[in-house]
Design a protein around this nucleic acid. Structure first.
Length: 378
RNA sequence: GCGGCUGUGGUGAAGUUGGUUAACACACUGGAUUGUGGCUCCAGCAUUUCGUGGGUUCGAGCCCCAUCAGUCGCC
């Protein structure tokens, strides 16, 4: 294992599928891969306390550079001693670079070689974020893993734009790496872009590998493309990546997508899906999806998911969750967020187990047919 | 017993110089949701109907009569 802030140890390779398990050693503890990482944009996984995250065996959680930069500001987080101390999370953390906001806030930004001009949604101010700024802010926020500042392009994107954007993302990656001031304490990952173009994905990955990042991410997926396209983009993106470095598929959290990602030797995924779905009343269960606000659950006094070991499923009924949701009670949102997040964490625990037993392909097929989710995967 | 006011969908209620598809909100019923947009978005939701029964009119939730119900005041 090479020196550096994190070490990645591969512990088993499934003889049936080629999928792998591993351990990511970080300054804030070891986590097993492949793993799902809950998203806590504003230095909180919405509605969940750190204690609740420990209780459902969450490992790495995310925070977002862009959001923390706007509020409370990098100075405050730095004065707190870093984001982990600020929010009292004792496990490892990862910050997204703000690159996704280039995509998601497309109405109010301008992209230039130097960086991106945003409009602050909170007060209308014009703000500017460069790759160097993003890394500086992430250095001060202090997560264990930080991300290159990239551009996440929409789908579909024409080839000319995808190529120009990808080349710029490479230049931004190099600039960010040069600006990284804490390489011994924070791992920096590069992000593969290139849209739905094989040669662009391959080239982007190859160039990033030459720069020697601590890990590599696949970006630009889950932006409206169909599943076949997404899986194609992932496979092209990882083809040229070194096997001994961690691989992170960004923004993916549907069950079928997670299982496919593991097949591609993806070690890390993050997604807002479990918490967002919970807030809107949709629950993922071992029997398929449940919309808890439906009237059929009004007098259903059975657990949400009898196979789940979370606080919500062990102590509460669907009737109670239905009542809490209709009453707009935050406790219901909290319980359902716990469940959905635990559901994906447990799915990955089971995936790791199947890999260790050299039966990952069987597990994947059985799981997909058993859970009866639709094509979306939730 | 007398007088006033009110009666529109599950709820609150718009709706008079009488004129096509009865506003809006909430609730309700579905749906959406992938590097976060908690309190969001989309769609549906009174169509033999405006307490009931008559009448006037080409046409009535709107005008007239009766009646029932609720409510306030007086005796």
């Amino acid at each position: 294992m090479a020196a550096g802030p994190i070490q990645f140890e591969i512990t088993h390779i499934c003889t049936q599928s080629g999928a792998r398990t591993g351990v990511l050693h970080t300054p804030h503890g070891d986590v097993e891969t492949p793993m799902f990482m809950p998203v806590g944009t504003q230095a909180t996984v919405k509605f969940l306390s750190p204690e609740e995250l420990y209780a459902i065996s969450a490992g790495v959680i995310l925070a977002n550079t862009y959001h923390l930069w706007l509020q409370p500001g990098e100075d405050t987080v730095a004065m707190a001693g870093g984001v982990q101390k600020f929010m009292n999370y004792k496990g490892p953390m990862l910050t997204d670079s703000g690159g996704f906001q280039v995509f998601s806030l497309a109405d109010s930004r301008k992209i230039k070689e130097e960086g991106v001009t945003f409009k602050n949604a909170l007060n209308g101010d014009t703000l500017f974020l460069s790759p160097e700024d993003s890394i500086r802010i992430q250095n001060r926020i202090g997560a264990d893993i930080i991300m290159s500042f990239d551009e996440c392009i929409p789908y579909p994107a024409d080839r000319r734009y995808a190529e120009q954007s990808m080349e710029r993302t490479l230049r931004w990656a190099a600039r960010g790496k040069a600006a990284h001031e804490r390489p011994d304490e924070q791992a920096l990952f590069g992000i593969v872009q290139g849209g739905d173009y094989e040669d662009l994905r391959l080239r982007c990955a190859e160039e990033l590998v030459k720069m020697d990042f601590d890990g590599y991410a696949v970006g630009g997926t889950s932006v409206g493309e169909d599943k076949a396209t997404m899986y194609r983009m992932v496979r092209w993106s990882v083809e040229k990546l070194p096997l001994d470095k961690p691989r992170y598929l960004m923004g993916v959290g549907a069950v079928n997508d997670l299982l496919e990602a593991v097949s591609c030797n993806i070690d890390m995924c993050d997604c807002v899906l479990p918490t967002r779905l919970a807030r809107h009343g949709t629950l993922m269960t071992s029997q398929g999806r449940i919309n808890i606000k439906r009237n059929i659950y009004k007098n259903d006094f059975t657990p949400l998911d009898p196979e789940c070991d979370c606080e919500c499923c062990r102590h509460y009924t669907k009737a109670y969750l239905n009542h809490l949701f209709r009453s707009h009670e935050g406790f219901g949102t909290r319980l359902m967020s716990i469940h959905n997040t635990r559901f994906l964490l447990k799915l990955m625990e089971e995936a790791r187990q199947a890999i260790r037993q050299d039966r990952y392909n069987d597990f994947k097929a059985e799981t997909l047919s058993r859970m009866k989710f639709d094509e979306r995967g939730f």
